Amino acid sequence: MSKMIRLTKDEFRVLEDKTRKINKELVRLEKSPMKESEMLHKILLDAIEKAEINRDGEVVLGS
């Protein structure tokens, strides 16, 4: 089942910048670059695994 997620312009700009930076490194390592959607899926899965609640009741990314 697929769902859509909306990003703000700022969120998408940050994603584009991070994707560009990581893709430069991937190319340098002779690996295939990633699309923004692939990058976002990877980041979301990793972040969800690390999501926790701190003492103040805020959602934070643990290790």
Rank of each mutant, 00 (worst) to 15 (best):
R28P: 05
F12L: 11
R55C: 01
V60S: 03
D56V: 09
E16W: 10
M4F: 02
T8N: 09
F12Y: 15
E49G: 05
I53F: 14
E36H: 05
I53T: 11
E30Y: 01
R28A: 15
E38M: 00
K24A: 15
E30G: 05
E25T: 07
R6H: 08
N54R: 04
P33H: 06
E25P: 01
E11V: 03
V14W: 09
I53N: 01
L61R: 04
L44E: 07
T8C: 06
G57N: 05
L29S: 10
L15F: 03
K18H: 04
K35R: 13
E36I: 08
R55D: 10
L40K: 00
L29P: 05
T8V: 06
H41Y: 12
I5F: 02
H41N: 14
F12D: 13
L61I: 04
E25D: 13
L7A: 06
A47P: 02
K18A: 13
K18P: 00
E49H: 07
L45R: 12
P33Y: 00
T19K: 08
A47T: 01
T19H: 04
K31W: 06
E25K: 07
T19L: 00
T8W: 05
E16R: 14
K3L: 11
V59S: 03
I43C: 06
I48S: 05
L15Y: 02
V60L: 02
E16H: 06
K21Q: 14
D56K: 11
I53C: 05
I53S: 08
D56P: 00
M39T: 09
K24M: 15
R6I: 03
L44R: 07
P33T: 10
M4G: 09
I22H: 02
E38Q: 09
G57C: 00
L61E: 02
R20K: 15
